[in-house]
Amino acid sequence: MKKKFKLESVDCAHCAEQMAVLIRKIPGVNDASINFMTQRLIIDADEAAFPEILRLAQKACDRVDDGCVIKV
């Protein structure tokens, strides 16, 4: 199932793209995309796996751009 999250302080479009690539690689994620303009992160994954995926996604974002926060 697909879920939407707000992504705060993404500063560069290129970073957003890189974050999406990293999040897509997280096990259990079917698809992920980041809309830089509307600051939305959309993750398509299994419902039960979401808490763990979100933790890993936040970690992936930190690696690309420190200070970027995924709001649930």
């Binding site: 560069c12 479009a13 290129h14 793209e17 830089f36 303009m37």
Partner: peptide
């Protein structure tokens, strides 16, 4: 750095 392109094209459409 490709910033000029990576930022301005989606910004135009937005």
């Amino acid at each position: 750095c490709p910033c000029a392109l990576v930022i301005s094209v989606p910004l135009s459409f937005f």
